[in-house]
Structure formats: C-alpha cells, structure tokens
Design a protein around this nucleic acid. Sequence first.
DNA 1: ACAAGTACTTACAATAAAGTAAGTAACTAA
DNA 2: TTAGTTACTTACTTTATTGTAAGTACTTGT
Lengths: 121, 121
Amino acid sequence: MMNKEDIATKKNEKKYQQANECPITIFMEKIGGKWKPVIIWLLILNKVMRFNELDKSIDGISQKMLSQQLKDLEQLGILNRKSYPVIPPKVEYSLTPKGQSLEPILDAMKTWANDNVLYSK
Amino acid sequence: MMNKEDIATKKNEKKYQQANECPITIFMEKIGGKWKPVIIWLLILNKVMRFNELDKSIDGISQKMLSQQLKDLEQLGILNRKSYPVIPPKVEYSLTPKGQSLEPILDAMKTWANDNVLYSK
DNA sequence: ACAAGTACTTACAATAAAGTAAGTAACTAA
DNA sequence: TTAGTTACTTACTTTATTGTAAGTACTTGT
C-alpha cells in the first residue's frame, strides 16, 4: 500500500522520465550549439589554450560568447579552468577526461562532414 | 616585466589550429539543432516511417517543424521521401545510405549521454 | 601621465529558431 | 450532409540565441 509520499514520488518519477527525452537530444542540448563543439575540438587538438588564443582561433566569436561557452563547459565538467594570479591575467583551459572522451565522436563528425558535405553535392 | 614563460610563449609564436570552415561546425550546421538528430535516430531504429508516426513519436514537435526538418534533411540527401498517390495521402520516409552512415555517430552520442549526463552529477 | 596587455562583464540591439492555431486538399464511409 | 483521414502550409507570435560596443581591473613599460 502506498502512502502520499510514494504516490508523489511515483508521479515525479514518471514526469522526470518524460522530461528526460532521448539521449541524443540530451547530447545536443549539452554540447550542441554554435560554439561549444569547436571549442572542444580546439582543446582536443591543442591540449591547453588561453582565452585569447581561443578567441583568435575561432573565427567570428565574440569575447562575450567565448566567456559564456567556457563557463557552460566548465560547469558540465568538460573543461578545466586554471587561473594564474599574475598581471596581466593568465588563464589556461584544458579538457577533463570527460571532455577528452568526446574525441572519437567529434572525430567521426569531422570525417562525416569531410566525406559527405564538403566535397559532395 | 615579462616572466620566463611569457617570453618563451612570445618567442615560439605558437601556431594554433584554426577553426574557420571547421568540419565539426559544418556538421553541426547540417544535422544539429533541436529536431534533426532525433528524426534521424528514429529512422535508424524503425527504417521506414510515415509523417504521422514521426509526429507521434517525437514528443513536443509540431507538424510545421516536422515538415520543415524533413524537407531540410531530404535536401541534404539524408532521407528519402516516397509519396503514394492515394487518398488520404501516404508518405514514407527512410534514410539514404548517407543518412545511414550517421548511425555510429548518433550511437556514440547516445552512449556518451548515458554515461556522462544522465547518471552523473 | 598614459597606453598596453589579458580576461573578462554589462547593457542593449538584432537575428534566428521555434511555438500556436488555423486552414487546405481530396476522397470515403456513415 | 457531415465527419474523418493524412500530410502538409500559412500567418502570426513568442522565446532563445547571438551580436555590438563599451567598460572594468590591475600592473608594467615608455
């Protein structure tokens, strides 16, 4: 026999699962978007990069966007931010193991794009 | 005054990978977004689906959005649209080989999301 | 005194993406 | 005659995302 809390829990459970759609949608919500994949890709290639280096490497990104995306990715546990207490400031970004685990996926995306979009009609 | 590291950095003039026309960005432009990945995933799983079946299978999508995304994917050569001249209308959607070639990527996304987002904090 | 360097933040404007509700066509069964 | 079926389209509104320009902090070099 269920008490009120159990019923509430069960209701919440159902609702939670419905809200938590398909994992591919979740993936896209987390690391999709205009800037996140390319930030991650640059950190895969270069291992450690400073704010300005990322800024210069990503064509068309603004400092505001870069800052925002880096913050998001840090909170997702995908990258590390290491700040040195020097003037002028120095901050280094690098991938966590979780971030590094995206390499095969991004690499597959790269290959797919090269094969199917770049040089095809 | 510059410290040793700064001097070394400047001297080496490190060249970082540039991200314009980056294939990963291209990939995201093509099959990223809110609905395309899940449409493709459903067609991977079910092989052939009708408009209404897709509509019912994708939580929260509107007919307008579904129609638009299907049109985009068809133009990208990712899916086939087969229309039967019957009343009421019957249209079947399925993946082209190009669309099917996305399976390992989407599968990797699914795995990554399950491992790193769903059950972690 | 003043510019330069680095890693940001803030306020505001513009654009892109998505949602809503309704309508359309053509036939068929009640 | 009217409702039901299917695969859409259209007009309009709302929300989300991105862009722009400027400002901040702190210290060193000129």
